[in-house]
Design a protein around this nucleic acid. Structure first.
Lengths: 249, 249
DNA sequence: ATCCTCTTGTGACTTGGAGTCATTCATGAG
DNA sequence: CTCATGAATGACTCCAAGTCACAAGAGGAT
């Protein structure tokens, strides 16, 4: 197989914000805004560039002038959506001082609430992760790795500095594991609302989410953490001692 | 947000093999075959139904008669590709007797070789995972959970029976974790060939793959396994003690 | 062999949205 | 005011998915 990857379609030119003139920038922003709603509501394919233009009362050609292609437009939408999310270390100090896994817990619980207030960016990120072309997906991954919008790398360093994460493995490996599993787990959690049936059903969702989150974090801690699963046992006791003890021991 | 998930486009009718007449079945198969090659070579969007028909010397309408839509066709292609992969427990006995993680190791190493001989189904599964519409993705997930084509559930049971996996967590949770991380890790490994740049670069790939596989399995074993992670600590030291220490401390 | 029926195949046609481009418009500098 | 340059327009092209009225086969009964 000499040329396995040789015949992939060449990625189209994504028009970036080359020369951000003031007037132009405002318009770009309005377009991205409207597009985000359209993509979120209808999905990537069903969203029509013409509709977006119509909603804004501008010409379709204008949008292509700005973003080059529908893909290019979506990429900008995706970037904005993802950048609107918090970075791990944006958690409040009182949470941060409790350490790496407390921060993860904080965000997992919190995210669900934020989802309810403002589901649009979440659905956009879902679309970016599962509902686009591979070519676009490559672009998205380039963005995610260069920009690290969730600040996973810094966050993992934080965990290492505090001695909460193993220092006998590649940091890249830890970052990947955290990224992968958090993304998937979060999607599986949120997806019940965003897109029922997208993932393996995680038991009965109703009120078991919190225990499921704890279970997941325990797994993650064993996987990449240093503590012999002490801390979270304490954590767990605090929350729902009786119920969990029978389940976990 | 009362209706977060209410406005998703309705999934199209996927025409299944309703009444598998002999003649018809053979033709379906030829179509799926050709389509698989086309999708693999050009990606979902760039592959054209017309081309597939032309290659087979049949009318385009015929394909739609059989599969209803391009999505429907892809779904069949995806199913065939995935079904062509081995199940975990298909590993040879001498590997199986060594246990759960030996089987995982066996497949991770092996898969790479198989990829070289026959990359097409692998690329199809990559497309299914990252390069299609959300609607289609939902269909794919339904297939994966109902059919469990890799036999993950049985395999996890196998691990539980042997006492290699923790019995204090939901089996569903273990299955999910194994599925998620194996898929992602495998994609990250194989993707260097299949679609460079799709994932975070995993260090220098050349000959370190094996050590990376061991490192990954160690992580997984800590996460869901019972054994106190003896085997892999030895491994890690062997690989690059100096560099890692300086890099991480 | 002939007729009937039911399934499969056909390809010209419709649809519909992405993307283009020659032209017009706006803006700001001189 | 005028000219130059960038932004906006919308009618247009292009292209591939998807449709459908009809044709062609394949039995089965008589």
């Amino acid at each position: 197989m000499s040329g396995i990857a040789s015949n992939l379609s060449i990625s189209p030119r994504y028009i970036g914000p080359h020369s951000p003139r003031p007037r132009s920038e405002a318009k770009r922003s309005r377009i991205v805004d409207s597009a985000m709603r359209h993509f979120a509501e209808h999905g990537y394919h069903a969203a029509r560039v013409g509709d977006i233009a119509a909603e804004l009362g501008i010409a379709k050609g204008s949008i292509f002038q700005h973003f080059g292609s529908k893909d290019g437009l979506f990429l900008e939408v995706y970037k904005r959506a993802v950048r609107s999310f918090s970075k791990y270390l944006d958690a409040p100090v009182e949470v941060r001082v409790q350490g790496f896994f407390a921060v993860l817990y904080y965000w997992l619980v919190r995210t669900e609430h934020m989802l309810r207030e403002d589901w649009i960016p979440y659905r956009i990120s879902l679309l970016g992760n599962y509902g686009t072309d591979l070519v676009l997906r490559r672009e998205i991954n380039r963005f995610l790795t260069t920009e690290d919008p969730y600040g996973t790398v810094a966050f993992v360093r934080f965990g290492l500095d505090r001695g909460e994460l193993r220092n006998d493995m590649d940091i890249e490996m830890i970052v990947s594991i955290v990224d992968w599993t958090m993304e998937r787990f979060q999607d599986a959690l949120l997806t019940a609302e965003l897109d029922p049936g997208l993932f393996r059903r995680q038991g009965e969702m109703p009120e078991k989410k919190e225990s499921r989150i704890r279970q997941f974090l325990a797994v993650l801690q064993r996987a990449v953490g240093t503590a012999p699963a002490i801390q979270e046992r304490r954590e767990i006791r605090k929350v729902a001692p009786a119920r969990l003890r029978t389940k976990l021991l």
